[in-house]
Amino acid sequence: MTGRLELQDLTVRYGDTVAVDRVTATLEGGRIHGLLGRNGSGKTSLLSAVAAFRRPDGGQVLLDGEPVFENPAAVRRMCLIRGAGDTVVHDWPGDRVRHALDLAARLRPHWDRDHADRLVERFALRRTARLSELSRGQRSALGVVLGLASRAPVTILDESYIGLDAPSRYAFYDELLADHSAHPRTILLATHLIEEVAALFETVTIIDRGRLLLQGSADDLRARGAAVTGPAEAVADLTDGMRVLASKQLGPTRSDTVFGELTTEQITRARRAGLQLDPVPLQDLFVHLTDPATATEQPVSEGSLR
């Protein structure tokens, strides 16, 4: 009962379009994982297959070793909230917040009513409000309540909290961490807004154009990018042969963003040459790695200064 997810060669197609392309990755149980990707990178398609909303067109998803598709036992242990909670039967004129909560209470075997009540209050949701009349922020809040109160061993939030305003997002982070420490389970958050949530993740999985770009511990990833700044020639000399994600030049000063750890020898050389070495924030690394102009497996050549 750990909530470990394994994606094996997972593929999702829409006609000729390959939305998820042979993604293989493992998400350990009981942790908070981040799934990062640009809009249209395949996050939602991937998560729909993970939560068994749809049959994979190739490969499979295992929850604690069991395939999830058409597996009622596995599906009961998972809760995927897409966007602002589209798992409720919404847009029926009569449906109200309390109906959505009642539906979740019936469908979710681990549903925690008290917790749901607390969260409804914290996010100032009105139970009698019509779903069709909720603002974007309120819909997001409802999605978050449905996800957290589900207490599902695998809880997946697909950009659910993105419509929340800043105070509500902070409340969500606090609730998520407190809830996770009291009831450890696997939590997967998909997002394209990274700066604010990066510290919540234990691992980060980045997909781009349907493919797995990289997966690793969030902290290790932070240590893998570096910005090298200084006299153009000295910078070029140091970063020669490295994977340069971006390069900018202002007068005689050049700044290269490299991906990959600098060796002790390189660091010493950089210091001696008077070069400045700075770490790269996770969000910047993500931006560079998923930039179509630079996101190649090959090191970017010297000539492609932009």
Partner: peptide
């Protein structure tokens, strides 16, 4: 973790 809003494993 809760005070600084970071992952407990960190």
């Amino acid at each position: 973790a809760t005070h600084f809003r970071i992952n407990p494993a960190t």
